[in-house]
Simulated scan of single mutants.
Amino acid sequence: MKQLPLYLAIAAGGALGAAARHLASGAMLALMGPGFPWGVLTVNALGAFAIGLYAALAGPDGRWSAGPVQRVFVMGGFCGGFTTFSIFSLEALELIQSGAAGLAGLLIAASALIWMAAVWAGAATGERFGASGPR
């Protein structure tokens, strides 16, 4: 029972993250059209940035004091529910199965590069505005 607040925080954050993912993916589909999975690329970049930023700001040397419940709500719950690696895998597979292996390769390569750059940018931004304030 001691872990119940952590599990509830993960569940609540996950529900909010999943709802936000659905809205963001739908917006990208409406904006960019169905030719390429822009929604999954976008939400994973945003999620990578958000988790990097939050980890830096709410970490041991960060500016924000965050307890374990708050950290799992944001990082494990919201960011975990917002990002879409399972959908990413499915969309890459569907591109391959539809004969668009080149697009699938582009999606996979671009995703890895963009998400790593985004998590780095989020962490760097958080560190810049972290415990010691702006540098």
Rank of each mutant, 00 (worst) to 15 (best):
P34K: 05
L107Q: 04
L103S: 12
G77F: 03
I51N: 04
F88N: 02
L93D: 08
L113E: 10
A66H: 04
Y7C: 08
R128Y: 15
G81M: 03
L23H: 13
S25C: 12
L95P: 01
P5Q: 03
Q3P: 08
G13F: 00
L46K: 03
A20H: 07
G122Q: 01
L46Q: 01
L4P: 00
A112F: 15
G122L: 01
L31K: 11
M75Q: 12
P134F: 14
A112N: 09
L106S: 11
L106C: 11
M116C: 14
R21Q: 12
A24P: 00
G126E: 01
A109R: 08
M75V: 13
I87G: 07
L57A: 03
A131H: 13
I108H: 01
M28I: 04
L95N: 04
F49E: 03
T42E: 14
A124D: 10
Q3Y: 14
Q70L: 15
G17Y: 01
Y7M: 13
R71C: 04
M116V: 14
G80I: 01
W38E: 03
L93P: 02
V43E: 04
L113Y: 09
L6K: 07
A12M: 11
F49L: 14
L106K: 10
L8K: 01
S132T: 14
P68S: 14
R63H: 11
A100N: 14
R71D: 00
L29M: 13
I87D: 12
L107Y: 07
A9L: 03
A101Q: 12
M28E: 09
E127D: 15
L23V: 15
G17K: 02
G81S: 06
A58I: 01
A18F: 07
S25L: 10
A100V: 08
A24E: 02
A110I: 08
H22L: 15
A30G: 01
L41F: 14
Y54K: 01
A18M: 08
A15F: 15
L6T: 05
L53I: 10
A11R: 00
L4Q: 08
A50H: 05
V72D: 01
P5W: 05
T84H: 05
L57S: 02
F36W: 07
P37R: 04
P134E: 13
G130D: 03
A50V: 08
W120K: 00
G99K: 08
A55G: 13
G33C: 12
A110E: 07
L46A: 06
A104K: 02
L4K: 08
L113G: 15
M1W: 11
L29N: 11
S89M: 02
G26C: 03
I87S: 12
A117C: 13
A121H: 06
L90T: 11
P60H: 10
F78M: 09
A55E: 04
L4Y: 09
V72R: 06
T42F: 15
A92F: 05
I51S: 04
I10Q: 11
F82P: 05
A92C: 06
M32W: 12
G77M: 12
A123R: 07
A124G: 05
R63E: 00
G105M: 10
T125D: 05
G59I: 03
R135Q: 15
A27H: 09
V43D: 02
V43P: 02
A104N: 11
G67W: 10
A11E: 03
G62D: 13
G102Y: 06
A56R: 03
A18T: 14
A12E: 09
K2Y: 06
A48H: 05
